[in-house]
Design a protein around this nucleic acid. Structure first.
Length: 278
DNA sequence: CAACCGCCCTGGGAGC
DNA sequence: TGCTCCCAGGGCGGTT
């Protein structure tokens, strides 16, 4: 499912085909995504000046506004030749002036295509309260430590909170906690600063490694070129409960946190807050 | 404000 | 083979 690495892979894939191109039209076959598809008439004829990413949102910048695309759980965005045969779940095409189309396919329709007028897409209500970019300069252990004081939620849910840090979903939260040696269910407020330094480093490292691999493909995800991501082979814990830990060979355990499956290694992820630190 | 939970949706897998 | 049930999950929006 698209988390930050998959969205970044998509961004990089479509960028060379889309930047500087003019939007000559669009086809909406099913407007019933997470929210009704918003493509204003004013988009016609506009030039896409840049394609950016904010968290899991893709931003197609134009002079008059920004098309904001979210891939939801099962979405992918591909650059295809105009006239490419339409498959099931191909909900939206953006027609470009280079005989290419940008096509959104999204079986579960949790994605969205929205529009923010003006030159500041961050003013959109969905973006305005977003937390830091994990690969940006400000994101660090001190930041996580400071925000987490008095927070009782499990640290895993804390780092999946988009108001804290963006782009970290179920897969990469589990992987980062494994890398940092932290038990996922521990209350965020009980974790000492040094451990948040490890965690921030782990989040950065895992995401960067996944971007290099082109993201994680479990089922639906493909990049703009239609190719899957290869990070799945490097997953240490996600989806591996009952299997041996790649580090200590102990059995990985499954725990439900915030209604989401969470896999961890009881031995390698021993950090359980102050009491266990000593 | 924080925490929690229901909900949106479809495909795939398990069980019968 | 075909049905039913359950699960996956981002994140909004309402409730506690």
């Amino acid at each position: 499912m698209p988390e930050l690495p998959e969205v970044e892979t998509t961004r990089r894939g479509i960028e060379p085909w889309v930047t500087g191109r003019q939007v000559i039209g669009w086809t909406v076959r099913n407007a019933a995504l997470r929210w009704p598809v918003q493509i204003p008439e004013s988009l016609r004829g506009q030039t896409i000046t840049a394609i950016q990413r904010r968290g899991k949102y893709l931003l197609l910048r134009c002079a008059d506004g920004t098309l904001i695309i979210h891939l939801g759980m099962s979405g992918n965005l591909r650059v295809l030749d105009a006239g490419t045969v339409v498959r099931k779940h191909d909900h939206v095409d953006i027609h470009l002036d280079n005989d290419k189309i940008l096509r959104l396919n999204d079986p579960r329709r949790f994605g969205s295509v929205l529009y923010q007028p003006g030159d500041d897409p961050e003013r959109h209500t969905l973006l305005v309260d977003l937390g830091l970019e994990p690969l940006g300069n400000e994101f660090c252990g001190d930041y996580l430590h400071k925000l987490s004081r008095k927070r009782k939620v499990a640290v895993k849910n804390f780092i999946m909170d988009g108001k804290v840090v963006v782009g970290v979903g179920n897969i990469y939260a589990a992987e980062a906690l494994f890398k940092a040696g932290i038990r996922p269910g521990i209350g965020a407020g009980r974790i000492p600063k040094y451990a948040y330094n490890q965690l921030a480093d782990a989040i950065r490292a895992v995401l960067a490694q996944a971007v290099r691999a082109g993201g994680t493909t479990l089922r639906d995800f493909v990049g703009a070129d239609g190719k899957p991501g290869y990070f799945r082979q490097q997953l240490n814990v996600y989806g591996r409960h009952g299997e041996p830990c790649r580090s200590c060979s102990g059995l990985l355990k499954l725990q439900i946190l915030g209604q989401r499956s969470t896999v961890y290694c009881p031995k390698c992820q021993a950090l359980q807050g102050f009491s266990a630190v000593r």
